[in-house]
């Protein structure tokens, strides 16, 4: 049903136009004998076609069209202006002012029907395109979401692959990723960045894929030479992930490379100091160490929460960025909730 707005101060014309519009079928006429009121109506209603007389008291057709076109979302709606044959100057002005076509007085049904049908066909086309554009935008958003979900899933699975070769568990990567997010939030990073670190942190140890089993899985203490080889997992992870087009993988590369750096410069592989260490690296260092301490391993018992907390506090400024430790401790309630949610025996998907 097309909504056809008709504005004419003469009642006989309103009646005639209304009758003609109804005869066209599929049209619902809306009548106004006052253009000011019609314009007011247009603020909250969207006609499919406007038929407006030129000569009216209070507001002529040209001023109505100007007012109508100035309303939000009303620039494309077709407007037909009714003029007498002799008003050529008015017609030119109306064309410049946004009228799409004209109807001449006295109204001729054949001409009227053809022009109104043309305008309604134009409107139908506009609506179709708009619907199609909206539909496509939705479709793209949906597909993008699917791709992003798949990206997250793949990252999780890649991260698990590294953990499979390690005494650490799937729950570890979930917990440390959520701890990292808690710290990011505590540092007042924006929501997108907090989400980014949550998605990227699981990849911190992905470079362990490249460490030989006799070193990676050695139950006893590593010799200094073996430890040097073990340290390569940071760079290996970075090499694996760097130069990706994915923002998450890029962040993962940075985290893999920087998560063993220490605040006082005594970490590896680059021995960076303080704020020279990428922020994500500083954040993940706290999250990763805390979870390692509080988890049981074949070669060690789990530390108590108090001991682990003290370790973080003692490491402020030496091992850890003090602000990251502070943010972590400030989010203690959330930390406990994450521990509760991701236990070692069961691994819910992110």
């Amino acid at each position: 049903m097309h909504k056809v707005l008709i504005i004419d101060d003469s009642e006989i014309n309103l009646t005639l136009i209304r009758a003609l519009v109804i005869k066209l079928g599929e049209c619902e006429p809306v009548l106004f004998d006052n253009p000011v009121k019609a314009l007011e109506w247009c603020r909250s209603n969207e006609p499919d076609l406007v038929i407006v007389d030129y000569m009216m008291p209070e507001m002529d057709g040209l001023r109505f069209i100007a007012g109508f076109r100035a309303l939000h979302g009303r620039t494309e709606i077709p407007v037909l202006m009714i003029t007498a044959n002799d008003q050529k100057d008015v017609r030119y002005e109306a064309l410049l002012g946004g009228a799409n076509d004209f109807l001449t007085k006295p109204i001729d049904r054949i001409e009227f029907s053809a022009r109104v049908r043309n305008m309604l066909a134009l409107r139908t086309g506009q609506k179709f395109l708009a619907d199609r554009a909206a539909h496509l935008a939705n479709e793209v958003a949906e597909r993008t979401r699917e791709i992003r979900d798949r990206e997250r899933e793949l990252i999780y699975r890649i991260s698990r692959a590294a953990e499979f070769r390690d005494p650490e568990t799937g729950a570890h990567i979930q917990r440390m990723a959520h701890y990292s997010e808690i710290i990011a939030r505590g540092l007042d990073l924006d929501a997108a960045t907090c989400n980014l670190i949550l998605r990227a942190a699981p990849m911190h140890d992905v470079g362990k894929i490249g460490i030989r089993d006799h070193i990676l899985l050695k139950p006893g203490r590593l010799t200094p030479q073996e430890f040097e080889i073990m340290k390569q997992h940071a760079t290996l992870g970075y090499e694996l992930l760097k130069d990706s087009g994915s923002e998450i993988l890029q962040a993962g590369a940075e985290i893999a490379l920087a998560h063993h750096e220490k605040y006082d410069g005594s970490g590896y592989p680059r021995g960076l100091k303080g704020s020279a260490i990428p922020l994500f690296g500083r954040i993940v260092a706290v999250a990763d160490v805390f979870d390692a301490l509080t988890s049981e391993r074949p070669y060690k018992k789990a530390w108590s929460l108090d001991d682990a907390m003290r370790f973080l506090e003692d490491g402020r400024g030496s091992h850890f960025d003090p602000l990251c430790v502070e943010a972590f401790l400030a989010g203690w309630e959330d930390v406990l909730e994450v521990r509760q949610r991701f236990r070692d025996e069961e691994v819910p998907v992110i």
Partner: peptide
């Protein structure tokens, strides 16, 4: 002819004219 041969509209127009 101008009213597309529509008697109904024609009658309506005459009524309107006389009324106004």
């Amino acid at each position: 002819e101008r009213l597309g041969g529509d008697e109904e509209i024609f009658v309506m127009m005459v009524d309107m004219f006389l009324q106004d």
